[in-house]
Simulated scan of single mutants.
Amino acid sequence: MQTTISDEEMKIIGLFKENVYGRSPDTNSFNQRHDGKDGHWLERQMGIAANANNEPDLYGYEMKNSTGSKTTFGDWSANYYIFKDKE
């Protein structure tokens, strides 16, 4: 099955390649105590005013940076999996 990429998705990919790909966030001008500074940097690079809204930012898509934790309600995944324990 072949996936078709929309024009909007291609615009997002183009912006990402031009403004984000291969770069590390420079958050020196942001409040260093703010946990969302990397996400706000990403939004600025994509031409979006930094915001904390959980609504689509760009062509119907929400811009988010990758985090090591997840915030969700109803995440029933286990904290520990015995089959992953090497001992």
Rank of each mutant, 00 (worst) to 15 (best):
N31V: 04
E87G: 09
W76E: 10
I12Y: 00
N19L: 02
Y81N: 12
E43R: 02
N53G: 08
D85T: 03
K64E: 08
G14R: 14
Y81H: 12
E87K: 11
R44G: 00
E62G: 05
S6T: 15
K70A: 13
D38W: 05
G22S: 09
K70T: 15
D35G: 05
E9D: 06
G14P: 02
T4H: 14
M10F: 08
S29N: 11
G36Y: 02
I12W: 01
D85C: 06
P56L: 03
M63C: 15
Y59E: 13
N53K: 15
F73G: 04
T27N: 03
F73A: 06
N28G: 08
I5D: 06
T67A: 13
S69C: 08
R33W: 08
G22T: 03
V20Q: 01
L58T: 02
G60L: 01
N51M: 06
K17M: 09
F73E: 10
T3V: 15
A78K: 15
D7N: 12
K64A: 10
W76P: 04
P25S: 04
A52G: 10
G14H: 13
F83W: 15
M1L: 11
M1T: 11
D35R: 15
S66E: 07
D35Q: 09
L58Y: 02
N65M: 06
G47P: 01
D26T: 06
N54S: 03
E43I: 01
K37Q: 06
L58S: 04
K37H: 06
F83T: 13
T27V: 15
T4S: 11
G39A: 06
H40R: 04
P56F: 03
T72G: 11
K37T: 03
R44C: 05
E87F: 09
T67M: 13
P25W: 03
S6I: 04
Q2V: 09
T27L: 05
E87Y: 10
Y61M: 12
